[in-house]
Design a protein around this nucleic acid. Structure first.
Length: 479
RNA sequence: GGCUGGGUGGCAGAGUGGUUAUGCAGAGGACUGCAAAUCCUUGUACGUCGGUUCGAUUCCGGUCCUAGCCUCCA
């Protein structure tokens, strides 16, 4: 069995991954809070941990359970729904639909379970009861709070010492708390906001309890990998760990993975700067595969700076890879040869795979991309047609670990990673073909002036002509 | 102030105790009627100061800069 090495935030070191049960590898990822359209920062953990999911599926023969929750109850959701005058369910349904539609364009595999918080209120109340029974929680003014001081190991994940933390430095300490560090498990709902019945109050759950409830329901009290954004390490993940210790007496998960944040032109995305890029907007401008490539072009733990140049580089890199596929007759690959057709197959892991080697070394996606380019180089350089075809099959298989290159090259180049509607090109494919044959005719008359005029005309409409030894092809021009 | 990351060639971004990463962009050449694509050649990078070493970008220490978190932001 191939070894997977992963950086574990719990130990701050790279460890060999050892699943609790190799017949059912279990991962949980903190999913989106669905109060507004997802932005490209939200897409990073989705894409990165999708690659992890693919790798695990391949190595453990598909025996992987991946849960990514949806937080559909929260102050921001309440506020937004109130503004729009709709129920939180109406709002969150709409945002979830948009989320699904967006990430499918990023070629993200469906997860095994995608539970919603509001469907698991009872499970949350059960855990709260356990915490009360075990002395880890107390009731105060309709709230239920977690008694942080009772758990000696609190702060282990984020390497924080409770005594040294300036408690309440950013937020007022509620008077009903025994200790400033105690966090909310349940709280009463304000007038006119969604409330669920409980013996403490008509209220709603605290933020962290949902993940304990949903993960334990679908993955058990202890599972293999828990992942999410770096910003969730404290307090969210720390509190989840505390809740699971308090309720079940066990460490929630063995491996904790945290992705780095995303910057826009070197700055944090924020409303005040007005630099938030909605995923939807980005997808209108660039093919999802370009976005996916950008997100994978940097190691997942590092801060990723999103720039126009980064997008351009991703696009060019993909052009080069697709160009290699185009060179071979991979349009005619058989079903068996072309296992990368975007359907998230659970291929048997290949021991020779350079991409898998890179990914098994703490998800080194930039190095994995290099392996793709090295294969493409070989394809460009070989004169042997059969060899090229073999390499093409291999390149597609390798790319599948990363969820890339699942389009037909011809389609890629005729869109060139852009929705043609959004470019200036208003010309139809038939018209393009017509102009190309006119140009061919002019060329055969050695009327190069007319031929060049036609080429110029097409280029003005963003269509690049390419004369190959098999005839003339076209594609959307580079920008 | 505390904790955790990071500082690599024009840009992005891996890796390594002594030998070309890779992609993008640039320059020159080949191919082409001209282009495009492709191919060839090319640019001598590792924040800073010390230490260990025959030798450090790679190990150790200091320092500077930078990012994130420190109660609800992926």
């Amino acid at each position: 069995m191939r070894k997977i090495q992963l950086y574990n935030s719990l130990s701050n070191s790279i460890e060999n991954f050892q699943p609790i049960d190799p017949k059912n590898v279990r991962i949980y990822a903190c999913g989106p809070t669905v109060y507004a359209s997802p932005h490209i920062g939200n897409a990073r953990p989705i894409v990165v941990f999708d690659v992890l999911f693919r790798v695990l599926k391949k190595i453990y023969n598909g025996k992987v359970t991946f849960v990514r929750n949806i937080t559909d109850v929260d102050d921001k959701i309440n506020k937004k729904a109130h503004e729009l005058g709709i129920s939180i369910r109406e709002l969150t349904d709409k945002v979830i639909e948009e989320f699904h539609s967006n990430i499918s364009k990023l070629n993200v595999c469906p997860v095994t379970y995608e539970p919603r918080a509001t469907d698991h209120i009872n499970e949350m109340l059960d855990i709260i009861q356990k915490l009360m029974d075990n002395g880890y929680a107390y009731e105060a003014a309709g709230h239920v709070l977690f008694r942080v001081k009772k758990l000696a190991s609190y702060g282990k994940l984020s390497k924080r010492n409770i005594d040294e933390m300036i408690a309440g430095s950013r937020v007022e300490v509620a008077p009903y708390k025994e200790d400033p560090m105690d966090f909310v498990l349940w709280k009463p709902s304000e007038e006119g906001t969604p409330a669920w019945k409980s013996k403490y109050s008509a209220g709603r759950p605290g933020w962290h309890i949902e993940c304990s409830a949903m993960s334990s329901k679908y993955l058990g009290n202890k599972f293999d990998i828990h992942c999410g954004g770096q910003d969730l390490m404290f307090p969210h993940h720390e509190n989840e760990i505390a809740q699971n210790y308090g309720a079940f007496g066990e460490l929630m998960a063995n491996y904790w993975l945290h992705n780095g944040m995303l910057l826009i032109d070197g700055q944090k995305m924020s409303k005040s700067l007005g630099n938030i890029i909605a995923l939807d907007e980005a997808l209108k401008r660039y093919d999802g595969e370009i976005i996916r490539y950008v997100l994978l072009s940097s190691h997942y733990q590092k801060t990723l700076n999103w720039t126009e140049q980064a997008v351009h580089q991703a696009k060019q890199a993909l052009n080069r890879l697709y160009g290699a596929l185009k060179k071979t007759d991979c349009e005619t690959l058989t079903q068996n040869e072309d296992r990368n057709n975007g359907e998230c197959h659970n291929n048997q892991a290949d021991d020779e795979s350079a991409v898998l080697n890179a990914l098994c070394t703490n998800l080194n996606t930039p190095l994995a991309l290099v392996a793709l380019h090295e294969l493409a180089d070989k394809i460009y350089k070989t004169e042997d047609k059969a060899e090229a075809r073999k390499l093409c099959v291999l390149l597609k298989q390798e790319a599948d670990y990363l969820g890339l290159l699942n389009k037909k090259p011809d389609i890629w180049f005729k869109q060139n990673g852009i929705n043609r509607n959004s470019t200036n090109a208003t010309i139809s494919e038939d018209e393009i073909e017509k102009l190309i044959s006119e140009r061919a005719e002019a060329k055969s008359r050695k009327d190069y002036k007319s031929a060049d005029e036609i080429r110029k005309k097409l280029l003005d409409m963003n269509i690049q002509i390419e004369d190959t030894k098999y005839g003339t092809t076209w594609r959307i021009a580079l920008d």
